[in-house]
């Protein structure tokens, strides 16, 4: 500052290092996505077919819903590992309440709602246990994930109940404009999530709490309440994802969520939401989820094992967290 008389302008100067980091966080993932799209279009004959694009979007939809919910929790610097268990429970609650081959319930759309709310309830319990009892979130959600699988197993009773409600089944299998209805549902969820993030206390305070919890506390913000809300949002996302998967497969199944948690966390992280909290957002998760989906689809088309992808996703998580935490290293620091 050399200007005279002294004034502090709004001119915002950012160091080059910060700018590069910001760019990587912001535009980087989008560039990666575009490069991947271009690469697979040339590497595989079938990748850019309308049919495959429709498949891509369908694959994206459930992952996106899951990832969007998870984003709210990761923004706090917490984590939700219960998604697979929650999806299992919600799929069974949903199928058993809708028209099915096990009982006489025919609640239709209300059954779907019950499935989603099952997820919300799990989120509520996760949040309360985490916040009120002070248990680390990974531990609570690991345990609640097992409870979710357990409840699903009990409801399952050895044989998968079939979803016979044709209207609901059509949500998962039928297409509009050549695209699965699930895609439109996921898009709606994304829009709602963006609005929540941008225009509500839950959304804005999520950034504040994740960014600096002690300041949030000093400002008189009811941290516990908003943390619990965030977990409810995450649970709701998982619940909806479970219902969506059930409409797609036509059954309720304790293993319906298997293999979803990992890509979902990777999607959030890849999009640029920091695992330490405070930075990121649901639109970034869209980009991250798209990268994961394109990668999964494209690699299969060019003949790479699907299991290698899980391995790569794991590596991506580690690298992302190492990279984002690298500058925070100190000689004297407590690590947990």
């Amino acid at each position: 500052m050399t200007s005279s008389p002294p004034s502090l302008g709004a001119s915002v100067s950012v160091s080059p290092g910060v700018r590069i980091k910001r760019m990587l966080l912001g535009g980087g993932p989008l560039v990666v996505l575009l490069l991947l799209l271009i690469f697979f279009t040339f590497a595989s004959d079938t990748f850019a077919n309308p049919g495959n694009i429709s498949v891509l979007l369908t694959q994206l939809s459930i992952l996106l819903v899951l990832g969007v919910g998870l984003t709210f929790v990761i923004l706090l610097g917490s984590i939700d590992l219960s998604a697979e268990g929650v999806m299992a429970s919600s799929s069974l609650v949903f199928v058993l309440l809708a028209t099915n081959d096990r009982n006489d319930f025919q609640f239709g759309i209300l059954a779907a709602l019950a499935g989603v709310l099952t997820g919300s309830l799990f989120g509520l319990v996760n949040g309360i246990l985490h916040v009120r009892l002070g248990i680390p979130s990974f531990m609570v959600t690991l345990g609640m994930g097992a409870v979710g699988i357990g409840i699903a197993t009990v409801l399952f009773g050895g044989r998968a109940p079939q979803l016979l409600d044709q209207g609901l089944r059509s949500l998962g299998v039928d297409k509009v404009f050549g695209v699965s209805k699930l895609v439109f549902l996921a898009a709606l969820v994304l829009v709602i999530a963006v609005l929540i993030q941008r225009y509500t206390r839950v959304g804005r305070y999520g950034y504040v709490i994740g960014g600096d919890e002690p300041i949030a506390r000093l400002s008189g913000i009811n941290i516990k309440k908003y943390k619990i809300y965030s977990f409810v949002l995450s649970g709701t996302g998982s619940g909806l994802a479970g219902v969506m998967a059930a409409t797609q497969l036509g059954v309720g199944d304790p293993t319906i969520g298997l293999g979803f948690l990992f890509p979902a966390i990777t999607a959030v992280v890849l999009g640029g939401t920091l695992l330490i909290g405070g930075r990121g957002g649901v639109l970034r998760t869209l980009v991250g989820a798209a990268i994961i989906t394109v990668l999964a689809n494209g690699l299969i088309l060019i003949g790479v094992s699907i299991y290698i992808q899980t391995a790569v996703q794991g590596l991506v998580i580690v690298i992302a967290v190492v990279a984002s935490g690298w500058s925070l290293r100190r000689r004297v620091r407590v690590i947990k």
Partner: peptide, 25 residues
């Protein structure tokens, strides 16, 4: 974890994906 000073649950969550994928492959 010790050198990069990152939370163990997240680093080992990544490792979980890595080795389960490798094992399956």
């Amino acid at each position: 974890i010790a050198k990069a000073q990152i939370p163990s649950f997240i680093a080992t969550l990544g490792a979980l994906g890595l080795y389960s994928g490798l094992g399956l492959a």
